[in-house]
Design a binder for these strands. Structure first.
Lengths: 195, 195, 195, 195
DNA sequence: TCCTAAGCGAGACGGTACGTCCGGTCTTTGC
DNA sequence: GCAAAGACCGGACGTACCGTCTCGCTTAGGA
């Protein structure tokens, strides 16, 4: 009944090995010194096996992001009932992680990769929480009246994620009070404190 | 009187030709297909002349930015007395420029270059107005009471520039109302309308 | 009684299809651009089916020669009673065939294949008539007294075939009188005309 | 006054090193396992330096032949006044050399290379003496009356060289009397012994 | 009638080499 | 002493085949 595809089946071991090697090399050498040959060698795989399944090194990186091999936790803001505190904590976490010397190269490389490939761009945006988790947190806050009913949630989350990206690009040093000020700037007083 | 250095002096013609060729190739082929050999050929210059004066292709791009060869006008927000309107107009200008098909590659490449090189990163940030012009406009607004006295100006401008960068990365399509909503998100109600 | 082998039997259709594809590809692309994958594709056969039955591409070519798929007629000298005339005619035929633009590649490739593989080497030699037909014609001539009783028949035929091979290798152009002169050189006056 | 070409000059060391490596690899691995990458590695040279100066591996081999790196002595027949003896000695020398186990691969590879490339073909023919030295010896013999005035010298030498090539191809074993019989066959009685 | 061995197509896999591009360095010549 | 021309070593690109190896199916004797 099944239409019966013939021929050997794709090697899952090879797939995993390739993605892990990609993640390792990407973190170690950065986006534009990332070499398919290097990945193949590190993965113990022939180049052709990579080219058979991925169109480019961008595709490899996008898949690594999908599998969570590059950004291990996917930065989910907590929900303690206090939106600003939660966002500040979340932003602090991201900044601390991104400023970790080992991760700085990784983050910059992610931005570079995102700039050169649409897939990676979207993946990075999601991985930084822009779409799902962060959005959800904002919606909760709006439902609870912490934000105005017409607050531009999408734009708020874009601003937050954008700030992270800009931070990565400019290699700005992070003062401890920065996340709080950023959250303050971005959430403004969409819910008037006096309201 | 002159302290007497002998030998030929640096050729200004070569310098200009190189930077112009860099700008042209950068816009045409993007950051990571930008080749020093290609620049040298297009500039009618030997590779050595490039390596003698610049340490890397990032340095070339940084110099192009400095000379305004890549972002011809440096996006300066107007000052009509209405901060939100001015910022919205400014943001619209930037988005329109960035979404121009010919400029999209350029912008993405700038982000990629910025991510890989600190010099370029800072240069890009300034070129997008984050430091000087945008900052000045915000200060004016604060002085006029459009913003609270303790409004986090630096963070507001970072959020705006960050949003631009994120927009470039994710290749998001721009709805006409988007700049307004972003400005709304970022300027929030730092000065309460009811205050 | 039968020693009992079970399982499907070798597909004659596949065998033929493979040899025909080999012959076609060999004539079209030459010996060292001859690809097993190409043969398999052209024959509508899997690579494994080829490797199951032949050890190498040389084996394939040798089999093609055996089946007469490469040198359709096996150049046989006529016997009109005049040895020199017969050999000249035969040599002319071979030269004309070999100089045919479509066949030149084929001949050169045959020599290349012969040089790299013993089986093919012997097969080619036979196909050019060195052993059987040519030899037989010389023996007839000797029996009739056209050649001395102690004429070195084997060496005469080797010289003739060798000249063909050299001609193929050097891509020499063929003057019409060349075959006659060669026959003259090689048969010399083993039977003295004055004798 | 000199027309003045600028830029670094071709490295003679590299040229020599490449040709020597080619000769070594060719003798060791044969024509169709001869790899440009292998030559480059053995010569301590980048691939580009090879491709800059030679169009193909055939060109490399042809140059090796020109420089005498493959066939060290260029097989010149002696002149003792006895043509047949000289040719027999010469042919014996060639056969002995070609049957040397180390040289057999070399000779076969030369034939293969010659079959695939015209330059190499002509070079091989010359190196085997067909054109100059052998021809000269035959002319001397004709002048002395050892050969008829109208003896087809070119064809005689072609037959001799052709026999060598055929010998190489068919991997025939060489009986000691073979060269004599071949010379007998080829020189026949162009000068009638009774004349 | 099953069982089992073999043939066969498809095709994934680790490799080797291809010929090209470009990086960064060095050398030669001319101004 | 700068600049052009350009050769050089090295590393990676993406492609083509190699020969081996599963897969899932078909074919054809023995049990």
């Amino acid at each position: 009944m099944t239409q019966g595809r013939r021929g050997a089946v794709r090697s899952e071991a090879a797939r995993i090995s390739i993605l892990q090697a990609t993640a390792a090399q990407f973190a170690a050498r950065g986006w534009d010194h990332l070499a398919i040959e290097g990945i193949a060698a590190a993965a113990g795989v022939s180049k052709q096996t990579i080219y058979r399944w991925w169109p480019s090194k961008a595709g490899l990186v996008a898949d690594c992001l999908l599998e969570g091999l590059l950004l291990p936790e996917s930065f989910v803001p907590a929900d303690t009932g206090d939106l600003r505190a939660d966002l500040t904590a979340w932003l602090t976490t991201v900044f601390v992680f991104a400023d970790e010397p080992g991760n700085a190269v990784l983050f910059r490389s992610l931005v570079a990769a995102a700039a050169e490939d649409e897939q990676v761009g979207l993946q990075v945006r999601d991985a930084l929480g822009a779409s799902s988790a962060l959005q959800a947190r904002l919606e909760t806050a709006r439902a609870l009246g912490e934000l105005d009913a017409d607050a531009p949630l999408q734009q708020i989350s874009d601003a937050l994620v954008g700030v992270i990206v800009l931070h990565v690009i400019t290699r700005a040093s992070t003062a401890p009070e920065l996340p709080g000020r950023l959250v303050h700037a971005v959430t403004g007083s969409h819910r008037s404190p006096r309201g």
